[in-house]
C-alpha cells in the first residue's frame, strides 16, 4: 500500500468525521439541557438540503453555511415547540421530526439535484508545503474543518465556564430546582435546542457543501443516529466527543484501508464495524453511564406553576 493511499484515507476520514463532530456537539448541548432529539437525522437532512440549495442559487458557499445553520436552528425549534411548549413525548416527537426531515429535505433539495456548486474554499495546512502536489491536495481543508476543534473547546467553555452553561446544565439535572433558583427552564431548553440546531446545521453544511458537494435524498446515511450514540459514548461531554468521533472515524478509516489494500472483505461487513465498535464501547462504559447522564434527560418538564 502506498503512502498516497494511506494519506488519502486519513484525509477522507477527517472530512467525514467533521460533520459528525459538529452534530455530536449540537446534541451534547441539547441533551445537557435535558432534551434528547432523536430526530437529529431529519434536522441534518433539512440543513444539508437548505445549505446546498442556497449555495446553488446564490453561488456563495458561505451564505449556504449560514442558511444551513439557520435551518438547523429552526428545525430544532419546531421540535422544541412540541416537547417544551406542548409537553409532548420526546422520543415520539423526535421520530416525527425525523419523518418531517425526510419529507422537507426531499422537497427543498429536489430542484437542486445534480447542480454544481462552488464548494467551500480549501486552504493548505502549513507544513507539508514542500511535498509534491498529489500529496498536498489531500491536505487542503475548508474552514469548517479548522474550526471544529476550537469549536469543541468553545462549547466546553460555554457549558462549564459561563453562567449560561451552568443554568443549562442545572435545567438538565433538575428543572424544578433551576426554576426555584430563578431560571426559566423552558426558555433555557429552547436556547439549548437552538444552539444545538446551529451546530447540527454546521455539520450538515460541511457534509453537503464541502465534502460530498451534492444533494441526494437520505444523504446523511444515519449520521444523526450515530451522533446520538456518540453523545452517550462521550458521556455528554464536548471534549470527550472528539474521542468518540475519532474512534468512529478510525473504524471508518480502517475499513477504507482494508478496501484500498485490496483485502477481499464484503463492504457490508466493514460498514458494520463502526456500529459494532460503538455498541461494544457503550457496553464497556455502561456500568458508569448512569452517573454522567443529565438526571432528567428525556423527561418532560411539566412546569412549576
Amino acid at each position: 500500500m502506498s503512502l498516497l493511499a494511506l494519506l488519502g484515507v486519513l484525509s477522507s476520514t477527517i472530512f467525514s468525521g467533521t460533520s459528525l463532530l459538529y452534530a455530536t456537539l449540537g446534541e451534547v448541548v441539547t441533551e445537557r439541557s435535558g432534551t434528547v432529539n432523536l430526530g437529529l437525522e431529519g434536522v441534518l437532512l433539512i440543513s444539508a438540503a437548505t445549505g446546498y440549495g442556497v449555495t446553488v442559487s446564490t453561488g456563495n458557499p458561505f451564505l449556504g453555511v449560514l442558511a444551513a445553520m439557520l435551518a438547523g436552528g429552526l428545525s430544532n425549534l419546531v421540535f422544541g415547540y412540541l416537547v417544551i411548549t406542548r409537553k409532548a413525548n420526546q422520543l415520539a416527537s423526535g421520530l416525527a421530526v425525523l419523518f418531517f426531515g425526510y419529507g422537507l429535505s426531499a422537497l427543498i433539495g429536489k430542484p437542486f439535484v445534480g447542480k454544481l456548486i462552488n464548494s467551500l474554499p480549501r486552504y493548505m495546512i502549513p507544513g507539508p508545503g514542500e511535498l509534491p502536489l498529489r500529496y498536498t491536495s489531500l491536505f487542503k481543508f475548508d474552514f469548517l474543518i479548522y474550526l471544529v476543534i476550537p469549536m469543541t473547546f468553545f462549547i466546553w467553555w460555554l457549558l462549564y465556564r459561563t453562567r449560561w452553561g451552568l443554568g443549562l446544565r442545572a435545567v438538565g439535572e433538575n428543572a424544578e430546582t433551576a426554576y426555584a433558583s430563578g431560571r426559566n427552564p423552558g426558555m433555557i431548553k429552547f436556547q439549548a435546542l437552538f444552539v444545538g440546531g446551529l451546530l447540527a446545521g454546521l455539520g450538515a453544511a460541511h457534509l453537503s457543501i464541502a465534502f460530498t458537494m451534492n444533494w441526494a435524498e437520505y444523504m446523511t446515511g444515519g449520521r444523526g443516529f450515530i451522533a446520538i450514540a456518540l453523545v452517550i459514548f462521550s458521556k455528554w461531554h464536548p471534549i470527550r466527543a472528539i474521542a468518540g468521533v475519532l474512534v468512529f472515524s478510525g473504524a471508518v478509516a480502517f475499513q477504507l484501508l482494508l478496501q484500498v489494500s485490496g483485502v477481499n472483505v464484503s463492504p457490508f461487513l466493514l460498514d458494520m464495524i463502526p456500529f459494532i465498535l460503538t455498541l461494544t464501547v457503550l457496553l464497556i462504559w455502561g456500568g458508569t453511564r448512569k452517573h454522567s447522564a443529565p438526571a432528567t434527560l428525556g423527561r418532560v418538564y411539566q412546569g412549576t406553576e
Binding site: A96, A106, L107
Partner: peptide, 19 residues
Amino acid sequence: LPYAVINLLLAFTLFVVLA
C-alpha cells in the same frame, strides 16, 4: 413530487397529535 415528500404528510399528522 419525490416520494419522500409523503413523509411530510405523516409528520404533520404526528405534529398535530403531539402538539
